[in-house]
């Protein structure tokens, strides 16, 4: 049975959280409610003629095969970004954890990319892989591979996944490293005395003990891939070629801000909001049970 400590209620705690609540209300609740309302309207950009249409914007979206396609693109993109950045970060963290000489330098260098803004990260990779002037594209051409992400959807997807994952590796690395250092050395030493090799020690001791960190990072990375990668997509591919890299959040932008279709765009952002809420709930309810604290 759980024990609950009940404090006598006083207005002070409410007063203390009030600033935070106010910020949330102004910067999240109010705009979110505006989006909800807007998603039920068909309106011209200047707001001169407005028609209340109930859920027609949503019906249109789900009748549109391109919108459904964007779902799959997003699923594929976020899974790839999350897997790649988590995997790489874990590998780097395990290696950095063992290094004795110059450890600080390695760590600092590995953390650096996190300070780069998404759009800059995108442009950086774009320069490397640009079919006309990119260095990597040039070397690929020498070894006989004609890289052209402007026309090849698979290559475009690969490029944005690499750019997005590269930027996130640092963040994950930091948390994995902290997680690794929190694992008691005695456990690992005991296993070593029992004759477990490094691989065995990693999979039976380190990895399970890291699971709270991994779980937390999984949530953070998925949300990152869903939303924060906008800058990278915008800078590198603009959702193209075709619709190959148009993830949901980019479609919200292109329909709302390029197409000036506010109702349809608002409906998409409402759906996006629901997805993220749903994902987070699922993760905490089902996956968290399997996490060892």
């Amino acid at each position: 049975m759980e024990k609950r400590v009940v404090f006598r209620s006083s207005p002070l705690p409410y007063l203390l959280v009030l600033p935070q609540l106010a910020v949330t209300a102004v910067f999240f609740l109010w705009p979110a409610s505006q989006a909800l309302y807007q998603s039920l309207l068909i309106e011209d950009p200047f707001g001169l003629s407005t028609e209340f249409v109930w859920f027609e914007n949503f019906e249109n979206l789900f009748a549109d095969p391109l919108y459904i396609g964007s779902f799959w693109t997003t699923a594929y993109f976020s899974a790839a970004v999350t897997a790649l950045s988590l995997g790489l970060a874990l590998l780097l963290a395990v290696m950095a954890d063992r290094v004795v000489k110059g450890a600080m330098t390695y760590k600092t260098l590995l953390i650096w990319p996190y300070a780069v803004a998404p759009a800059i990260a995108g442009v950086l990779w774009l320069f490397l892989f640009n079919p006309s002037i990119g260095l990597v594209a040039y070397y690929l051409k020498i070894v006989g591979y004609n890289w052209n992400h402007v026309l090849n959807g698979g290559e475009a997807m690969l490029l944005v996944v690499i750019a997005a994952a590269w930027k996130q590796v640092s963040y994950n690395f930091l948390f994995f490293l902290a997680g690794l250092q929190a694992i008691p050395k005695s456990l690992i030493e005991a296993a070593a005395i029992d004759g477990a090799g490094p691989v065995r020690r990693f999979w039976t001791i380190v990895f399970p003990l890291l699971s709270p960190t991994t779980f937390f990072l999984l949530v953070v990375n998925l949300v990152y891939a869903f939303f924060d990668t906008f800058g990278i997509i915008h800078a590198v591919t603009k959702g193209g070629p075709g619709k190959a890299t148009e993830i949901l959040v980019y479609k919200v932008y292109s329909d709302g801000f390029v197409g000036l279709d506010l109702g349809g765009s608002a409906a998409q952002s409402v759906i996006l909001m629901a997805i993220v809420v749903g994902l987070t709930v699922i993760q905490f309810r089902f996956i968290e049970r399997r996490v060892h604290y």
């Binding site: 026309l151 193209g240 292109s254």
Partner: peptide, 19 residues
């Protein structure tokens, strides 16, 4: 109307032809 987006659609379809 929505010409900017229609151009985007045309771009996407033309890219499929070039590819």
């Amino acid at each position: 109307g929505s010409f900017d987006q229609i151009r985007g659609i045309i771009d996407e379809e033309l890219e499929a032809v070039w590819a």
